[in-house]
Each structure stands twice: as structure tokens, then as C-alpha cells.
């Protein structure tokens, strides 16, 4: 087991199988660590990572003398370092990375499948995060897109380290879009930066207008909210304007799109949003 990141060989699962990848770790002081994987499988279309490990155990021999060490370090600083490393890789390739967050059942995967279909030849890739199963990655692969499934085991969110590993399997083409479908959870993923350009929160009209007030952190962290399944609105006495005002109450700067992935309503606006942000990212890349 790696004593810095706690990444355990025996618990990592690719495609549902345990795989002992010959790790070569390189631990530096100022960045997390870099991995060189020596495993021999190359079936990129069936990549599947499994996490669920605990922290590493280490013993440090040394002096004992009462004193105070001032550190002023963010608790999530390690995650933030992985996220920064991911962000650098993505910036260099001009890849637009979006972290899709929502509660379970908001229609993220259906929205994604529809989006992929409508984007046609646009190069893209998907990282799917779930506690268990490869179902979502299978659904994405059925559209012809490249997908890696990350299973978090007991974990309730994706983190920068998992996403960095998943990215290694995707060979992201310059100018592509990377969709990261986070674990369905409106709490924890808000705090974990993955290196994305923006968080996109998806909520469906059946969830209740007060959802943004109940889980403000996620909607505050998101740049865009997609109000999905609007085709169901007439059947469930829902006030779409109230959804929007509650979203703006917790995040006055949030952008909002009303969409139905099923009927296609509003999908053109979502695609335009993607195209605009991808172009901005490529301009930044070519300016460098």
C-alpha cells in the first residue's frame, strides 16, 4: 500500500476485477505524488476503478518534546493538489471538464446520453462515478462514447485522485469535453474539487421547489443549474419560477436552464452553453 495516498493495490478494481498494478510512486514534497502504472490490460472501453480504502497507517519514530506546530493547512489540501494537477492537464489539452452533480434519480445519465447523441462528432469522454455497478458506464458506451466507471465503494463522492487515475485511461483528445458524472449526492461532492471548469447541478422538477434551500452548498458551488424533466411539470403541480427564485436565493449568480432530456425541449440551449464554454477554453489554451 502506498503510505502517502493510502491507495491500496488489492482494492482497486478495473472492470470489476481486482488488479495488482505495479505502482511506482514518486513522492515529492510539493505535489501529491505521481503514479506509474505497470498493469498490462489495455481494454480502455471497459475501464472500471474501484475505491473504498481507508487511510494509510504509518509510524514515525522521533523526538518527544512538548511544542506547537502551526500549520494553517486546509483539511482538503491534498485533494486540492490532485485537482490542480488534473486542471493543468486539462488546460494544456484545451479540454472542457464539467462536474455533473445531483441527487440520485435526477436524470443525469439520460441527459448525458441525449447530449452525446446531439453533439455528434464532438470529441468527448465520460467518467462515471457510482458506489457500485458499471450500469451507467455501459449506458454511456452504448452511445459510442468512451467511458470509465469509477466505483467509490463506501465513498460518497469522487475526489481529485480518483479522477486523475480515470483520466489516464481516457487519452483525452485536444478540444474535447470531459463529463464527470459524480456520485448522486447533494452534500459531499460540493467540497471536493476535481479540477473541473464548472459544476453543473441537475435537479428534476419532481424533487420539490425547496431542494436548493435544503442543500444550499451544492447549488452555491454550481455555475449552472439544469432544471430537468420539465415535461413532467404539468403532472406534478410544480412551480418552475419558485425553483428558479430558490436557486437564486442560495446563489444569486447561478445560470439556469429548463430542459427535458426526454422530449428534447431546452436541449439546444444546453448545447449552446457547452459550445460557448468549450470555445472559451480552447481560446485560453491557444493563448498560452
Amino acid at each position: 500500500m502506498c503510505t502517502v495516498c493510502g491507495c491500496a493495490d488489492g482494492e482497486t478494481k478495473v472492470d470489476g476485477h481486482n488488479h495488482n498494478h505495479g505502482h511506482n510512486h514518486n513522492h515529492d514534497q510539493n505535489h501529491g505524488h505521481s503514479h506509474t502504472h505497470g498493469h498490462s490490460h489495455d481494454h480502455h472501453h471497459h475501464d472500471h476503478h474501484h475505491y473504498g480504502h481507508g487511510p494509510a497507517g504509518t509510524e514515525v519514530p522521533g523526538m518527544s518534546q512538548e511544542r506547537l506546530i502551526e500549520i494553517e493547512t486546509d483539511i482538503l489540501s491534498k485533494n486540492d493538489r490532485y485537482a490542480q494537477a488534473n486542471r493543468a492537464v486539462l488546460a494544456q489539452a484545451g479540454v472542457l471538464a464539467l462536474n455533473l452533480v445531483s441527487s440520485p434519480g435526477s436524470g443525469k445519465t439520460t441527459l448525458l446520453c441525449k447530449t452525446i447523441e446531439m453533439l455528434g462528432n464532438q470529441p468527448l469522454a465520460v467518467i462515471e462515478g457510482d458506489q457500485q455497478t458499471q450500469n451507467d458506464a455501459d449506458r454511456i458506451r452504448a452511445t459510442g462514447a468512451r467511458a470509465v466507471q469509477v466505483n467509490t465503494g463506501k465513498g460518497c463522492h469522487l475526489d481529485g485522485h480518483m479522477v486523475g487515475h480515470a483520466m489516464e485511461h481516457l487519452n483525452l483528445a485536444t478540444g474535447s469535453i470531459l463529463f464527470i458524472e459524480n456520485v448522486g449526492n447533494l452534500v459531499c461532492p460540493a467540497a471536493f474539487d476535481l479540477g473541473e471548469d464548472a459544476k453543473v447541478a441537475i435537479l428534476s422538477v419532481t424533487e420539490g421547489e425547496d431542494k436548493p434551500l435544503k442543500y444550499p452548498d451544492m447549488f452555491t458551488a454550481a455555475r449552472l443549474a439544469i432544471l430537468n424533466k420539465i415535461d413532467l411539470a404539468p403532472h406534478c403541480d410544480v412551480d418552475l419560477d419558485l425553483y428558479e427564485s430558490n436557486l437564486r436565493r442560495v446563489n444569486p449568480g447561478i445560470e439556469i436552464l429548463r430542459v427535458s432530456a426526454r422530449t428534447g425541449e431546452g436541449m439546444a440551449d444546453w448545447l449552446a452553453w457547452l459550445t460557448t464554454h468549450l470555445a472559451a477554453k480552447s481560446n485560453l489554451q491557444s493563448a498560452q
Binding site: G6, P55, T58, V60, T73, K78, A191
Partner: peptide, 26 residues
Amino acid sequence: MHEMSLCEGMRSVIEDQARQHNVARI
């Protein structure tokens, strides 16, 4: 929230610091 994950983050920061400062017990 995700207090368990936060504590794992804390443990990793604490262990790095302990190693750097060569201390055996916090």
C-alpha cells in the same frame, strides 16, 4: 456532511507534518 472523509484528509495532513517535523505523537 462527510466528516469521515474530512478526518481522513486531516490524518494525511497530520502524518505529513509529523514526518516533516520528526515527531512521534500529537
